[in-house]
């Protein structure tokens, strides 16, 4: 995603300016100092933007798929059709031995398995923007779940 790359330096720069204004003189590393409300809000916005993109992908939005150059399904089906509210995606259980794959797997492995098998779509870059967004949406929807790695 083109403007994603553009945005992060902008936020960093913004944070830098805030910091600079706050301490007036010495340039230093922002993360060593107390966070301002604006900074925290900026971080939150970056995260929630990814959640919303992930939500769109998860619900099969064609424009978002096109923009991120992914094809998550060739059968008309979308993730949310089997997983309303991301139900039964169990991000809190990963990594774990995943029966269908017969291997020790991460959530990203499982996402790609679902894209490839039930959805008959095309696997996505495990470190690419679509995967990160899907992960953001799934984790956010399950943020009150209790970590339970390895559980079947």
């Amino acid at each position: 995603m083109a403007n994603e790359k553009l945005r992060y330096p902008l936020i960093t720069a913004g944070v830098g300016v805030l910091f600079f204004l706050a301490v007036d003189t010495e340039p230093a590393f922002a993360h060593k100092d107390k966070h301002t409300a604006e900074q925290l809000q900026a971080f939150e916005e970056v995260f929630m933007e990814q959640v919303k993109i992930g939500d769109l992908l998860f619900h099969g939005d064609p424009e978002t798929q096109k923009r991120l150059n992914v094809n998550l399904s060739n059968t008309g089906t979308a993730c949310a059709m089997c997983h309303p509210y991301t139900s039964d995606t169990h991000p809190h259980q990963f990594p774990k031995f995943q029966e269908q794959m017969n291997e020790f797997a991460t959530l990203r492995n499982m996402i790609n398995w679902c894209i490839e098998k039930p959805n008959e779509g095309e696997k996505i870059d495990p470190d690419g923007p679509a995967m990160k967004a899907l992960e953001a949406y799934i984790y956010w929807s399950n943020r009150n779940s209790k970590l339970d790695p390895g559980r079947h």
Binding site: M48, S87, D88, H92, N142, R143, S145, D148, R151, H152
Partner: peptide, 17 residues
């Protein structure tokens, strides 16, 4: 419970944005 999705007490879902 292990054979059903009706009973994962660790799963807490939130509605969409």
């Amino acid at each position: 419970g292990v054979d059903s999705n009706a009973q994962d007490s660790h799963e807490v879902l939130s509605p969409r944005v």
